[in-house]
Amino acid sequence: MPGMQTLARVLLAAGPADAEHIQPVTTGMIVKYAVTTVVGIALVWGVIRLFGWIEEKTRASFGVRAGLIGIGVILTAVGAYLGLFWAPPDRMMGDVQRIMYCHVPLLWNALIALCINFACSVLYLIKPSWKTDSLAEAAAETGVVMGANGVLLGAIWAKPTWGVWWTWDPRLIAAAIMLIAYAGYLALRRFIEDPDRRALWSSVVGILVAVDLPVVWFAVRWFRSIHQFQSSPSTVDPALRVPLRVMAFAFLFLLMGFLWQRYRIALAHRKDEVALPDALPTTARREVTP
């Protein structure tokens, strides 16, 4: 723990002399992040077990997935109504600000998905399992879909407010890098035929990319040294907060439904790959068998 503390201090103190808004790192923060990481990984492990239990022991799997998506669709409709018609226009940004109710929840949920991917990558290295590998694949794909959508919405929002589609704002750069990195991760998964190697290597890449992302965030922030555009729920007016929350939960339900469905696809695919008889020639079969 002291080692981590020192490393974090070096990283955070190493910004340029004129950088602003650098929070000091406390041991409490590091403990908090470490505990959150461990708890999150354990949580994902629990979710995988739960999926497996529902899939094997009950016949409710389809119903649960349909239910998740159904709740998601209904909440999305409610959220869209609240965001488009019920919420008052923003004092400064007028009606354009309504894009936020889609933009922010999309990116929140994309980040949740990518965190799940990280947890699965770690879990796979600890204890290899097709289930963790499948969930990692599902989470990366869902995360990239939602993240790309969110970033695109950000660009659309930027046009009327900033006058340009894209600014080299730290947050935008970090988001773009995140998408490219996970696109690379998905490409890697497609380019490796051997399921064992694919699972192992994509876990390594998943961990490297996930560890890199917070670093990207800090580095880019110092590099650009621009003022931040903070939007945390506490600074947002209550009338704007309601549609934001509804939309966040709507997309969360959609995310869960999508994840589960994609996980089933990946798992079935893995089982097909593994069940392939040895006599069949595949391109990536290992030559040497003991």
Binding site: R91, M92, G94, D95, V96, I99, C102, K159, P160
Partner: peptide, 12 residues
Amino acid sequence: RITGGWGYVWFS
């Protein structure tokens, strides 16, 4: 205040 821009919103 930015007025209009509903096109952007609908599109998004």
